[in-house]
Design a protein around this nucleic acid. Structure first.
Lengths: 380, 380
DNA sequence: CCATCTTCCTTCGAAATCGAAGACAAAGCG
DNA sequence: CGCTTTGTCTTCGATTTCGAAGGAAGATGG
């Protein structure tokens, strides 16, 4: 593997490179405006970055009434990032260039129940394979990152108290991956990565709640443009008590958690009581689209419960938008019931300019989020 | 009035002065560490600030094994801030020096129902009086700030849709005060000011929820060390739906809002149905301390309801601490029921290091918060 | 086509910042 | 006491950044 050399950027150069890489700026003038540096300083540093082969000039942008800007891009040869989004039974793996744009993305079957060592070694092998088949020769790997379907302590890179990951509790994921690669390693909760990825598609929205509705219910929170982690566990909404007709026990030991009614797993369980078999949350969406009334009713109820929980959070956080992602997000009744509940019950002041919408970032949003966070680590 | 001259600080000088003023640093070495500037640059700028009469050296600090730092303080002659915390029937008014330390604080009766013009003119007159009687001669006023018992749009300085402030909707408070003083003017929600003030007493806690339990229920949110405003309305928890035995309509038009059960006003109303008359939320606390069972039961129930709402927010925001302030905060049963509800129902991961405590900042915390935010405006 | 405007980018001297080296001042310890 | 350790603060030359001015390149509008 060719690529243990550190990126030769520091200080202002790193800032500028990051701004271009993350898509916040694509001309010298924009860089000057956003970074706060003087235009002359920007020109100097950009010159150096181009000489170092990290940036390239590529065509010119559009202008309304002035000289066209010379568009800047991160050089395709500047480096690669290997990123993954690990799910219970499958993982998305990809290579990104240093602008965070994907070169390859593949979805592969896997099984996290095999335990951390087996899964992470499989992941590393998959990365190596991707690099071999799709990595441009001579372009070094600069960082590795992955999302986990459970709580992560980002400082130590460990998974903590995951509910659906037997054998993973307290396993040092970052350290284990770091043994394969002597590079910056990022380990983060999957909903958080989704949130960071989505944030790129919502310019101007500095405060976002990004719901991931799949087998479980996760939520990533963007405050002031940055991922909010709290003490490491922020974003949990799945164990909020909801007002339900019946009374169901959640795996956490409390009754009537949101997760016990509105998660994909809960919906699948409820459907099986009607004698309807499903294998994954996406099957529930298919049933809804086919007009199966039991499925529609269940999804609608799930949306209402989620919406009622969001009500509290919307009044409290007053975000710019709520974004719904995850495999259940394509179920139209889910999002419309969420909308109805939120708009009905929240303060007008909080919903005045609130947008509630499905993912804009596409299926690779979480991978892009991983790239975005990794860039911060790589461009120190 | 002596004092329309701008503070002659800009750029790095302002940053350094702000760090000393807010108490984040009190020596050159600390300034260098926190600001990120080189020690030599810090020394240069500090020299200039001392020459300009804005900083003074005062004694020396403590050291464990090295030369003692020369302690820096903002000069008492650098300027004054006039701050107020407006309540429904009384206001606290004070003068602070530029380190945010109070020179005088007074509590005076007033009535916001008289309308914005009368109230704000009264406030300005009170400020002038304080300056005349307590302001050191020759020390200029640098900024004016006030807290409002209702939602505030901080950008425009207007009060929006206040529930208990007839005649104030959309009134340009900042502009009106600005007509008296040609100075930076700050207008902010009272719970937000309390939160900022409290944050000074919770070093190391970057994420705080500060509850203000008085006639109403407000909440200020500190995320990443800074006040979170969202789109301007963040922090509302009073109109969350709670699980109550009966069904009560709230003034906002929805049933079973937290405010309808747990606010000081609601408690007073409930007590009057028992034939117990109270005039202010503090009277309820006195009844509790006297062991009046109806009062204790009501307060305990209020705490439980508040705690259940906080449950959701704690899991979501994962803060370092919940601070309870406001006139009801001294009622012991309130805080213990809040604690019980939160610790019982929240995720262990979220409550592991969570502290739930009453105000540390004392009665002037909101004024200190106003000072803190004003400093940011003054030391631009 | 030409004057005019806007925006982008560079040039160059002035100013701010950095960083390494060292002076200064105390605490800890034999 | 002297010696080491730790930490604070200043000096000074090298580097970086700033900002004003102007050149470059295109849009706009007669």
């Amino acid at each position: 593997m060719s690529g243990k050399e550190r990126l030769p950027v520091r200080g202002a150069q790193g800032d500028l490179l990051r701004l271009v890489a993350t898509g916040h700026a694509e001309s010298r003038a924009q860089l000057a405006r956003i970074s706060g540096l003087a235009a002359s300083s920007v020109s100097l540093r950009v010159e150096e970055l181009i000489d170092a082969g990290l940036l390239v000039e590529e065509g010119s942008g559009t202008s309304r009434g002035g000289r066209r800007p010379r568009r800047l891009r991160v050089s395709p040869t500047a480096g690669l990032l290997a990123v993954a989004d690990l799910g219970a039974h499958h993982a998305r793996l990809g290579l990104l260039d240093l602008s965070g744009a994907p070169l390859v993305v593949e979805e592969r079957a896997c099984d996290i129940a095999l335990g951390p060592e087996a899964t992470l070694d499989w992941m590393a092998a998959s990365f190596d394979e991707l690099l071999l088949t799709h990595g441009p020769p001579g372009v070094p790997l600069r960082g590795v990152g992955t999302g986990m379907p459970g709580p992560v302590d980002p400082a130590s890179g460990r998974v903590v108290s995951p509910s659906r990951m037997p054998g993973w509790h307290n396993f040092p994921v970052a350290e284990h991956l770091g043994a394969h690669y002597d590079l910056p390693v990022l380990v983060e909760n999957d909903a958080n990565l989704l949130a960071v990825g989505e944030a790129r598609s919502w310019p101007g929205c500095d405060n976002l709640m990004v719901l991931k509705a799949g087998s479980g219910i996760g939520c990533g929170v963007i405050v002031d443009g940055r991922l909010h982690r709290g003490r490491g566990a922020a974003g949990d909404i799945s164990h909020v008590r909801v007002r339900a007709d019946s009374s169901t026990m959640c795996s956490c030991g409390h009754p009537d958690c949101l997760e016990a009614y509105a998660s994909g797993a809960a919906l699948m369980g409820a459907l099986s009581e009607f004698g309807i078999a499903t294998r994954r949350p996406g099957d529930v969406v298919a049933l809804v689209e086919d007009g199966v009334p039991e499925a529609t009713a269940l999804v609608r109820n799930a949306g209402r419960l989620i919406g009622e929980v969001l009500t509290v959070l919307v009044n409290f956080l007053n975000p710019d938008a709520i974004v719904v992602g995850g495999s259940l997000s394509t179920a139209e009744p889910l999002i419309s019931s969420i909308r109805a509940a939120v708009y009905e019950r929240c303060l007008p002041l909080a919903t005045r300019d609130l947008e509630i919408a499905v993912t804009r970032g596409g299926p690779d949003a979480a991978l892009l989020g991983a790239g975005s966070l990794l860039l911060d680590a790589v461009l120190g």
